[in-house]
Simulated scan of single mutants.
Amino acid sequence: MTRKKNHYMVRLLSVLMCILVTPAGANEQVALGKSGYPVPRFVSLAKDTVNVRTGPDRQYPIKWVFKKKGLPVKVIAEYGEWRKFVDSEGATGWVWGALVSSRRTALVLDQNLALYEKANRDSDVSVVAEGGVIGELLECRKDWCRLDIQGFRGWAHRKSIWGTLEGEELD
Rank of each mutant, 00 (worst) to 15 (best):
Ala114Thr: 03
Lys118Gln: 12
Glu117Met: 10
Gly163Ser: 05
Arg158Met: 02
Leu107Lys: 12
Tyr116Gly: 02
Phe152Gly: 05
Ile161Trp: 04
Glu117Gln: 14
Gly135Glu: 04
Gly154Arg: 00
Gly132Asn: 15
Val133Thr: 11
Phe152Ala: 11
Phe152Val: 04
Ser126Tyr: 11
Asp148Phe: 00
His157Tyr: 12
Asp122Asn: 14
Ile149Val: 10
Lys142Phe: 07
Trp162Leu: 06
Arg153Trp: 03
Leu107Asp: 05
Ile161Gln: 01
Lys159Ala: 15
Phe152Met: 12
Val125Asp: 07
Asp143Tyr: 05
Glu130Met: 12
Asp124Pro: 04
Leu138Trp: 03
Leu107Tyr: 12
Leu113Met: 09
Arg121Gln: 07
Thr164Tyr: 02
Gly163Arg: 07
Gln111Trp: 10
Gly163Glu: 04
Ala129Asn: 11
Trp155Thr: 02
Glu136Val: 14
Leu113Gln: 06
Gly135Trp: 00
Leu137Cys: 05
Ser126His: 10
Ala119Arg: 13
Lys142Met: 04
Glu117Arg: 11
Trp155Lys: 05
Glu130Asp: 15
Arg146Asp: 02
Thr164Asn: 08
Val133His: 05
Ala156Gln: 01
Phe152His: 10
His157Leu: 15
Cys140Gln: 14
Glu136Leu: 12
Ala156Tyr: 01
Asp124Gly: 08
Val127Ile: 12
Val128Met: 09
Leu147Ser: 06
Gly135Ile: 03
Gly154Glu: 03
Lys159Ser: 13
Gln150Leu: 15
Leu109Ser: 02
Gln111Pro: 09
Cys140Thr: 15
Trp144Lys: 04
Ile161Gly: 01
Gln111Arg: 14
Gly131Asn: 09
Gly131Lys: 14
Asp148Trp: 00
Gly163Cys: 08
